[in-house]
């Protein structure tokens, strides 16, 4: 039983990162029906930018660990949001009237571009975050030793999800985003500046991906230019699992994916872990063809 709970927390920790990346995926998808294959690479860019900012400004000399994390998060989110907006402007906007698969090819081209750009700028070797940023101690919850950092990651993604949900549901811009998600043309007729809405979505989605990259860097320490591919695929899986376009769905999908992985490795086979995950996914989709929580996309795909 102990082992089970231990594996559960392992799974939740990984899953919360998948969830954070999946939030960005799902948001962009909700409005544009676009699978942004470059999203994983925006996440990797976030991880690399976080490292650059951390080492050039020497933030930890002036601030405590929490301060460093918050300042870094804000800066990384800002920068990656700009990259995301530029990506939208250059690679996706000209394709908005085209068939949706055309944009997928453009997204893949962008993904190859970003990945190799990171390799050329930062080198192909692993990059490593400094070890002394976050406290290494663990907190004891119900007799369980859980590293503080894990709680932090979980907390961040839950916070982000709640904030995003409230933003979409309660604010004027959020309403515009929802309107554009249902029918862009109708939204335009109602006086909504759809281009601006899409731009905002492309600021928020990548920002979430970027902050997830920072979290991975801070937590695991090791980053690599190809990491976006793997995490991107996992997050896409998570988004689909929960029901794409659905914000709580991305969260549930991410956490569940992490837990399935951990349980697959724990009780079935480590080497078959990813295959087990996909088998579960396929089984779920056969039973529920639009994901666990259902999709929130009004338009016919």
């Amino acid at each position: 039983m102990d082992l089970f709970l231990q594996q559960l927390t392992n799974g939740l920790a990984v899953g919360s990162i998948y969830a954070l990346i999946a939030l960005g995926y799902t948001m962009v998808y909700g409005v544009l029906k676009l699978i942004n294959f470059a999203h994983g690479d925006l996440f990797a860019i976030g991880a690399y930018l976080g490292l650059t900012l951390l080492t050039t400004f020497g933030l930890s000399q002036y601030l405590g660990p929490m301060g460093v994390v918050i300042v870094l998060a804000v800066m990384v989110m800002g920068l990656v949001a700009v990259v995301g907006a530029v990506l939208e402007r250059v690679a996706y906007r000209p394709l908005r009237q085209a068939h949706r698969l055309s944009a997928v090819v453009s997204a893949m081209g962008a993904s190859i571009f970003f990945q190799n750009a990171l390799m050329l700028v930062y080198g192909a070797r692993y990059k490593v975050y400094p070890h002394d940023i976050l406290p290494k101690n663990a907190v004891s919850i119900m007799g369980f030793e859980i590293p503080l950092v894990r709680l932090l990651v979980l907390l961040t993604s839950v916070l982000m999800m709640v904030a995003l949900y409230l933003f979409i549901q309660k604010t004027r811009i959020g309403t515009a985003i929802r309107a554009a998600a249902i029918d862009q043309r109708a939204a335009k007729l109602m006086g909504i500046n759809v281009d601006r809405v899409i731009m905002i979505v492309f600021l928020i989605g990548p920002a979430l991906g970027g902050v997830a990259g920072l979290m991975v860097g801070l937590y695991y320490g090791q980053i690599n230019f190809t990491m976006g591919w793997m995490y991107g695929l996992k997050a896409f899986t998570a988004a689909i699992l929960g029901g794409i376009g659905n914000i709580p769905g991305a969260m549930v999908g991410g956490l569940l994916l992490g837990v399935i992985e951990a349980m697959g490795a724990a009780y079935i086979s480590i080497a078959w872990k990813d295959a087990i995950t996909f088998m579960v996914l396929i089984a779920i989709l056969i039973v529920r063809p639009t994901g666990l929580l259902g999709e929130r996309v009004a338009d016919k795909v």
Partner: peptide
């Protein structure tokens, strides 16, 4: 056993 390379989390 075999792990899957390039996945950051090996706690499981």
């Amino acid at each position: 056993e075999a792990l899957t390379p390039k996945q950051n989390d090996y706690t499981a």
